[in-house]
Amino acid sequence: MLHEISAQQREISDTATVLTVMFDQYRRSHHACTAEEIATLLDHVVTESTEGNRTTLVTAWTRPAHSHHDDGQPEYPPAYLRVAVDPDTGWGAMTWIELTAGEVLDTFDPAELEDRPALVFAADEPSYLPNSASPPLERIRHALCEYAETGTRPTTVRWQQGYLVL
């Protein structure tokens, strides 16, 4: 079950991996530590459409990440994923952002571009990910599982140069 973070969970050991997912313009933060919680949370990521919203932010870090909507100061790891999905059509896309290296990469899948929906990257002034950034949703799910396990940029998908929209 998805849950809000408790004060006790904020004190998780530095050796644990905490998956944080921020939905709805980062207003809803959910955290997972166990394999079962992570699987449930990632399932929610790929089944909750991001249409009309900004992307969902996903972090795998040694502690919970916090948005500016959470209590306290925003806190993000130096690298994380933004995810856009359209579960009705079966397509998704991810953007890898690594702040320390200044790296922004979008997923890349150049096959059958005409059948893909336009996935919103930013909603304030609609900005769309390129169609080439949208692999099938099952590949997005697999890459998210890899990221949750390793905390590094997934290698199970291809990447292309992206751009950062705040």
Rank of each mutant, 00 (worst) to 15 (best):
H68M: 14
T15H: 07
E98Q: 12
I97N: 10
E51F: 02
T40M: 08
T56G: 02
P87V: 09
S67R: 04
P64Y: 01
M22Q: 13
I12P: 00
T95L: 13
E11M: 09
E48R: 11
H66R: 15
E36Q: 13
L42I: 12
T34S: 15
P77S: 09
V46I: 15
E48M: 07
F23Y: 15
A35Y: 00
T62I: 08
W91V: 05
A32H: 01
V18R: 04
A60P: 05
L81K: 08
A65K: 09
D70V: 06
V45K: 04
C33Q: 15
H44I: 03
G92L: 06
P74Q: 11
T40P: 00
E11G: 00
H30A: 05
G52S: 09
L19F: 01
P74A: 13
A39C: 01
L99T: 14
V21D: 06
T89K: 12
E103C: 10
I12R: 11
T15R: 08
M22K: 08
Y26P: 01
T17M: 11
D24P: 00
T34W: 03
S13A: 13
Y80M: 11
S67P: 07
Y76C: 02
A32K: 00
Q25Y: 07
A16L: 11
V18E: 10
L42F: 06
T50S: 14
P74G: 09
T55Q: 12
A60L: 08
N53W: 13
N53I: 00
A65S: 15
E11L: 13
D88F: 01
G72Q: 09
V83W: 01
G90Y: 04
T40S: 11
H44L: 08
I97V: 15
W61A: 15
T20D: 05
L19R: 04
A39Q: 13
I38P: 07
Y76R: 05
H44K: 13
Q25A: 08
A65Q: 11
T40R: 03
D70K: 02
D88E: 15
